[in-house]
Simulated scan of single mutants.
Amino acid sequence: MLCFLCVSLCLTLFSCSTEQKPSTSDPTYTLIFIDKTRSVNVNRAFVMRKYQQAINDIIEQNIRQKGDRLDVYFIHENTSKARALNMTVRAEMEDVSAASPTDREAAETEFDLLLTREKAQIRQRVLQQLVAQNDGASNQRTDIWASLPVIEKASETGLSVKVYYLSDMIESVPGANRRDFQKTPPRDNTQADEWAKADAQNLKRYTIGSPEITMLLPFAPNASVRENNPAVTQYWQTLFAELGVGNVMEE
């Protein structure tokens, strides 16, 4: 009987201590790179649907608390200087550790309302950037390498960094020690791995940490290999892995 009471008391104390622990999750820094070059047409119905849904999902998953950040950059000839949007969540949950159940519920309701409003504003502004046109000369080149210093700067904040490329990932920059997949794509996965490992030696000057990276390609499931060259995505998988990224997804 005594043992039973001891066990019951321990379980009760453990339950109370866990219930009182506030959330300690760190804010998230979301980077969305939207391709604004001639090779990606967001006006195509499939692409628009896919990218709109992706943006909705990204905001729903990553915008959760005060301090969450979201930046949008355009991918084109001057990607690292092409920040189109920068937003930080201001909605804050009150400290309800000593509040009554009624006051706690009221505080949570108020926070949910404020956060929902901010999500709607962020969603609207990101979708505006999605459909923005780039008719300038910068749409002739696709410099995805230039996203690396942007990721590096985000990683320096100490926040959890999540990166999304809404792009065909066709790097296209002429010149020595660059890649132009428009003219010369990797012929197979073996060559893609070789190029990525060679390029990584130069690009390791960027310390990008361990962000989660997702490549959202603008290709229908029945796209031909010529349109959606798997060796190109293999190149990026290997390059990011060489730079220390542990989680790279393709959708």
Rank of each mutant, 00 (worst) to 15 (best):
I75E: 06
M93V: 01
L243W: 04
Y235H: 03
T79N: 08
M1V: 15
K119L: 04
E19S: 07
N177M: 05
L166H: 09
S8H: 07
N247A: 07
E251N: 14
D26Y: 05
R187T: 11
D68R: 00
D188H: 02
V173S: 07
R64T: 14
E242V: 07
K183W: 03
Q237L: 10
D168A: 14
A176R: 04
F240I: 12
P218S: 13
D135W: 08
L148Y: 02
E171N: 09
D143M: 01
V150A: 03
A106M: 06
A120F: 02
A200S: 06
P221M: 13
S147D: 11
Q124W: 00
G244M: 04
G175L: 04
A84S: 10
N56P: 02
A192R: 00
T30P: 11
R83N: 14
I34P: 06
S172G: 09
N229W: 10
Y165V: 09
E242C: 10
A45Y: 12
E94F: 08
V126Q: 06
N62D: 04
R83F: 07
T207I: 01
S160P: 02
A176I: 08
W145E: 13
N222D: 15
W195H: 01
V42L: 10
Q140E: 10
E251Y: 10
P149C: 02
K66H: 02
I213K: 06
Q133I: 10
R49V: 14
R90P: 08
N139I: 07
S25F: 01
T37M: 04
S80L: 02
E242W: 09
K162S: 14
D35T: 12
A231M: 05
N228T: 13
T102N: 10
L70P: 01
K204D: 01
Q128E: 07
T214R: 13
G136Y: 09
D103C: 08
P27T: 00
P230E: 13
Y235S: 03
R104K: 15
T238H: 09
P22Y: 07
I63V: 03
L70N: 01
Y164K: 05
E105M: 03
T88V: 14
S138K: 10
D68N: 05
T214I: 13
N86D: 09
E118K: 00
K66Y: 00
A82Q: 06
I213V: 15
K183Y: 06
N228Y: 11
Q61V: 12
R226I: 14
Q234M: 13
R179F: 03
K81R: 14
S167A: 12
N43L: 07
T116R: 02
R125D: 02
D57V: 11
I63Q: 00
S167I: 09
M215H: 08
C6P: 06
L115M: 02
F74A: 15
A231Q: 03
V225K: 15
T88Q: 09
V72Q: 02
E194A: 06
Q191K: 08
L148K: 01
Q234S: 09
K50P: 13
V225F: 12
A45L: 13
V232A: 01
